[in-house]
């Protein structure tokens, strides 16, 4: 399955397209699409140029976990730099 990710235009933060069609920083709230449908949804997302930039598809499994050859990259994007655990979303979640 696929999810759609991008960087928010205003601050560059990593976001995902959510079930409510809004952008969310949490991959866990991201909408999942069948591989066949994903392209059209992505095209629509890309046109939202006042909100985001550089939208693309990532591979996720049924539970929404990142899979595939970009796993390390997408995991780092999701959480923050592995060398600064005090920064990025990871800083909030591990409290």
């Amino acid at each position: 399955m696929k999810a759609i990710t991008a960087n928010a235009l205003q601050d560059g933060a990593v976001v995902y397209l959510g079930d409510d069609d809004q952008w969310t920083p949490h991959l866990s709230s991201a909408a999942r699409f069948e591989d066949g449908d994903a392209k059209d949804v992505l095209a629509a997302a890309c046109s939202r140029i006042e909100e985001i930039t550089e939208a693309y598809l990532i591979s996720v499994d049924d539970s929404g976990a990142i899979i595939g050859r970009e796993t390390i990259r997408e995991t780092i994007r999701k959480g923050g730099p592995t060398v600064r655990l005090d920064l990025g979303l990871q800083a909030e979640s591990c409290g």
């Binding site: 960087n7 601050d11 560059g12 933060a13 990593v14 550089e54 990025g88």
Partner: peptide, 22 residues
């Protein structure tokens, strides 16, 4: 401006987009 139009302008001003932010 679209991102395609803006990108060369921001790059001329030292502004890149990285993984987590600009």
């Amino acid at each position: 401006l679209s991102e395609d139009e803006f990108k060369p302008l921001r790059l001329m001003n030292g502004l890149y987009l990285q993984l987590h932010a600009y």
